[in-house]
Design a binder for these strands. Structure first.
Length: 303
DNA sequence: AAAGCAGGCAACCGCAATTCT
DNA sequence: CAGAATTGCGGTTGCCTGCTT
């Protein structure tokens, strides 16, 4: 799975990692242990086990309780991330398929660096995976002097993307013909970046399906969800999702929120205010009160 | 064989958003 | 209404592996 998990686990268990701090940023091997500080760095199999057991018993949410009640010496944030990116059921591992890559292109053309939003359209994929994939692509294309998008995917707006800057979020159109045509035919191998200072406008078109109608999982301070006794499954082959964009249809209307990684996390709220984020508190409460049986969550509805 | 580079990946941080008290 | 607590998101960093030179 990961390049270093095995060896890292051994090192951890044998206490060979120095409790050093590398300053800001993440990355493997960053381990802090001790009575006062919570551990950082790569997760061990034992820690994973503890976390999975906790979630199995108590469900997701209240991540700080994990640390308090399970003996896991990790901050809640770290646990949540670990669960979301690695331990959740139905996570797809491995490289992105061509369809997924195409969809990422389309979604990025439309939304910019909205990884969580993109992940919601890619069942089994995490925002982190997508982000990593995209950043790698950006690096490669930049080095090759190629445009970020194939010529047949036109990012609306005249702005260019920069991996480190906020992209324009006001797409006008997305034109997609055949994203996997050889990109070497691109007529204009320009790859210019500029910071997004002129386009702070974040008026995203209302994303119709954003309402988090499907997530059973916790929102801050909500009652704990019931324990997860069985996890929904996702069949990428037979899923209407995959077949829906396997054809040549360029459209990818968001009829419904895609099932988020099989066992959806919390009601997705997206920055920059699309959809759910701007529900009034009252509306949110109503939505949250509308509990959804677990089995419904496993059966995404597509139009 | 060794060094350099690119890609892949995991995990951190800061901050925003949301809810509860 | 304000502040605290919690969760989610996006940016960033650093390690590991495999390929190329």
């Amino acid at each position: 799975m990961t390049p270093n998990n095995g060896s890292v686990s051994v090192l951890h268990s044998e206490g060979m990692w120095p409790p050093e701090s590398r300053g800001s940023g993440g990355g493997g091997g960053y381990v802090v242990e001790g009575n006062d500080c919570l551990k950082k760095g790569p997760w061990t199999a034992a820690e994973d086990q503890i976390l999975m057991e906790y979630v199995r018993k108590h469900g997701e949410g209240n991540w700080n309780e994990v640390q308090r009640n399970s003996g896991l010496n990790r901050c809640g944030k770290s646990g949540r991330l670990r669960w979301a990116n690695h331990l959740r059921p139905n996570l797809k591992k491995g490289s992105f398929s061509l369809e997924e890559q195409r969809l990422i292109l389309e979604l990025h053309a439309k939304y910019g660096n909205k990884w969580a939003r993109m992940a919601s359209q890619l069942p089994g994929r995490t925002d982190n995976e997508i982000k990593n994939h995209w950043n790698t692509r950006v690096k490669r294309r930049k080095r090759q002097g190629l445009p970020l998008y194939p010529h047949d995917i036109k990012q609306s707006q005249q702005s260019h993307f920069h991996s480190q800057t906020i992209p324009s979020l006001t797409p006008l159109t997305t034109i997609i013909q055949n994203p996997f045509q050889p990109i070497t035919n691109c007529s204009t191998p320009t790859f210019s970046f500029h910071t997004q200072s002129q386009t702070q406008a974040h008026h995203l078109p209302p994303l119709s399906p954003t309402p988090p109608s499907l997530s059973p999982l916790s929102s801050p301070h909500r009652p704990k969800p019931t324990a997860l006794t069985s996890f929904p499954t996702f069949d990428p082959i037979n899923s209407p999702t995959s077949s829906s964009f396997s054809s040549s249809t360029p459209s990818f209307a968001f009829h419904r929120p895609a099932p988020i990684l099989g066992a959806p996390l919390h009601h997705k709220r997206y920055r920059d205010s699309i959809g759910f984020s701007h529900h009034s508190p009252q509306t949110r409460k109503e939505i949250l009160q509308c509990s959804v049986p677990a089995q419904c969550l496993a059966l995404p509805h597509f139009n």
